[in-house]
Design a protein around this nucleic acid. Structure first.
Length: 591
RNA sequence: GCGCCCGUAGCUCAGCUGGAUAGAGUGCCACCCUCCGAAGGUGGAAGUCACAGGUUCGAAUCCUGUCGGGCGCGCCA
């Protein structure tokens, strides 16, 4: 319908241009919007085209609007056109054209709302990608819910989507995890260990240690004294005293030395594998699935990082200083140059990430989307710089930054830190509030908005959480259909289609109008990466259904009216299911 | 200090590629089921769109500055 009106306006303006009553070089995208005004006073669709073109046409907007409407071709789908306010053109759609949406929804079913606007373009979406140093917590949950929704929306909009989790299973943080696990293991063997301030303190580290102890007994045991002697001093809690980084690095070196490669690997792998397995399970439970889990370690071992560095060296994008290799990112808009190879010969996380993004392009993705926590925003310029330095177009990469979910427990802000082990896990959250509530709640806000997440409120299962409201609308529709069967009233879909002119109540008109907007909502949500638009839409649709439900009986004696109304509400049910599915929320038949 | 994000009803947030009287949920007040599920509906009160300038027919929306909050500014990831 929107495109139809757009077409009518285009033809009207071309007509005026031929009459030379409008400048020929005039060009403007014709924007059609659903009217926002209360009730129907502003019609069903509106265009501000006359306001947009008034200046170029050198006449006042209202006069221009009149000339445009005079030139509009006739359409069987438009009942009336009005000029209002400063020069808006309001279109009133015939009720026949409106009712068609009910038939369309039934015919398309699950496919209703999908489009081909993405044109099969291949887009890779990387999200969550939390380091496997601990279980996912509620902060990761937001990225997971958001990323999954964006990916599903893109699929609905006709893109070909490849979802990927980048596993940082190489590098220093993983060594710190391995050292932490080993020290807990030694404790369980009875050694008196002073745990490093920089180690991972969560209970899950003890669990992994216990598993190792069960499997390997004391074979990995070394005396505490041998482990701890001659280490650089650790820092105190307040940061004073020794160097915590030097301390933990020395501890890692000591672990490798005492255990030897094979045994160190045993501890290391036990840590990564256990945690990664947990993360996969948690995401699966959360309804988030990936096409691929991409291992940083495999990237390094394949030589891709080395190749990336060589490629940059060859084109003089790297230089040596203070024993390290630096990337000239400041030449591409970054604040300063960045190290890719450390003085000790180890490559940095950044080096891996350059290789990873190079690899994405080599795999043929036309567009890539990275979804990161907002604390990484300073990282965007350097990764775009790297793409540019490699001769790639940085615009093919969209980085979406998800702000933190600030946790409250009963109005009190909670501090979270993976290292200290004080955090609420995603699993705990879902156990408490349910997966559906969590998924919906997370995408209610646009990603750059800070989010307050009060656990007590979410746990209370109160009506504050709008997911129940939307699900209830769906359950109610299902309930009506159960009643229809129990009462032995028959429901003939085709008879309903044939009697859609019965749907003349304002509530019914409002619902059909809302339903007709759904495809546009999907398109906007997908292209703008804004699942919250869909969440809001679903709540509005649910509201209009509940209002209708309270105002009118559906299971009436008049079969023509009954079938028409059931056709309408089952169409509503279909759209609720389609929309909730895209957000990863179930549409239960009973609650 | 520099950079990014945010500031809209008591609270949580939509609206931001400039357009019509700034919306919703929640909370508060008053109502509505002998009727398909009251996890619902109807009505009401509630706003200097942080502040100050600017751009123009028109600014919550764009520009500049100020204030307030969050985050970042490692040879960590």
């Amino acid at each position: 319908m929107k495109h139809h009106i757009q077409d009518l306006l285009t033809r009207a303006i071309e007509q005026l241009q031929q009459d030379a009553s409008l400048p020929a070089e005039l060009s403007s995208d014709i924007q059609i919007e659903h009217s926002r005004g209360r009730g129907k006073e502003h019609g069903d669709y509106a265009s501000n085209i006359a306001l947009m073109l008034a200046k170029a046409a050198r006449c006042n907007p209202r006069q221009l609007a009149e000339r445009i409407t005079d030139a509009l071709p006739q359409s069987s789908q438009i009942s009336r056109v009005e000029i209002a306010g400063p020069g808006f053109i309001n279109f009133f759609v015939t009720s026949n054209a409106f009712q068609q949406i009910v038939v369309d929804i039934h015919n398309a079913g699950e496919a209703f709302g999908r489009s081909t606007i993405g044109n099969g373009q291949v887009v890779q979406v990387e999200f969550v990608s939390a380091n496997p140093t601990g279980p996912l917590h509620v902060g990761h949950g937001r990225g997971a819910a958001y990323g999954a929704a964006v990916a599903d929306l893109l699929v609905a909009a006709g893109f070909k989507v490849h979802r990927e989790y980048y596993v940082n299973d190489a590098g220093r943080q993983m060594d710190i995890l391995a050292a932490s696990v080993w020290l807990r293991y030694l404790e369980q063997c009875g050694e008196a260990i002073v745990f490093p301030s920089n180690g991972y303190r969560g209970d899950y580290v003890r669990d992994i240690a216990a598993t190792i102890h069960n499997a390997h007994g004391n074979t990995l045991r070394h005396p505490a004294q041998a482990v701890m002697e001659n280490l650089p001093a650790d820092a105190n809690k307040d940061g004073s005293g020794g160097d915590k980084e030097a301390h933990i690095d020395a501890l890692i070196a000591r672990a490798k030395q005492l255990l030897g490669n094979a045994h160190y690997r045993t501890v290391f792998d036990a840590g990564v594998d256990t945690i990664l397995h947990g993360i996969r399970e948690d995401l699966e439970m959360f309804g988030v699935v990936y096409e691929a889990w991409f291992s940083e370690r495999e990237l390094v071992e394949s030589g891709a990082v080395e190749r990336a560095i060589e490629r940059l060296k060859k084109s003089d994008k790297l230089y040596e200083r203070d024993g390290a290799w630096w990337f000239r990112s400041s030449q591409y808009g970054d604040e300063k140059d960045r190290v890719v190879v450390r003085e000790n010969g180890e490559t940095t996380y950044f080096a891996s990430d350059i290789a990873y993004h190079m690899n994405k392009l080599e795999r043929g993705f036309e567009r890539t989307i990275d979804i990161w926590g907002a604390d990484h925003h300073g990282y965007v310029p350097r990764i775009k710089a790297a793409l540019q330095a490699l001769g790639e177009d940085p615009k093919t990469l969209d980085v979406l930054l998800v702000q933190f979910a600030i946790l409250y427990r009963g109005g009190e802000k909670m501090q979270m830190s993976t290292r200290s082990g004080e955090f609420v896990t995603l699993r705990e959250l879902c156990d408490e509030v349910g997966r559906d509530a969590a998924r919906f709640f997370y995408v209610m806000r646009k990603c750059e908005q800070h989010m307050d997440f009060d656990l007590e409120l979410a746990k209370s299962q109160s009506n504050d959480n709008p997911v129940y409201y939307v699900q209830y609308a769906h359950a109610r529709i299902c309930s009506v259909m159960r009643q229809q069967q129990e009462k032995g009233l028959d429901w003939q879909r085709d008879d309903g289609f044939a009697n859609l002119e019965q749907l003349s109540e304002p509530h019914e008109q409002a619902l059909m109008s809302r339903l007709s907007r759904y495809p546009q909502v999907i398109e906007n949500s997908a292209l703008n990466h804004e699942p919250h638009q869909l969440a809001y839409y679903l709540r509005e649709l649910a509201t209009e259904f509940h209002t209708y439900y309270n105002a009118h009986q559906f299971l009436v004696d008049d079969s023509a009216q009954r079938n028409a109304r059931i056709a309408l509400i089952t169409a509503v049910g279909q759209v609720l299911r389609n929309g909730l599915a895209l957000l990863g929320v179930t549409a239960a038949e009973t609650m």
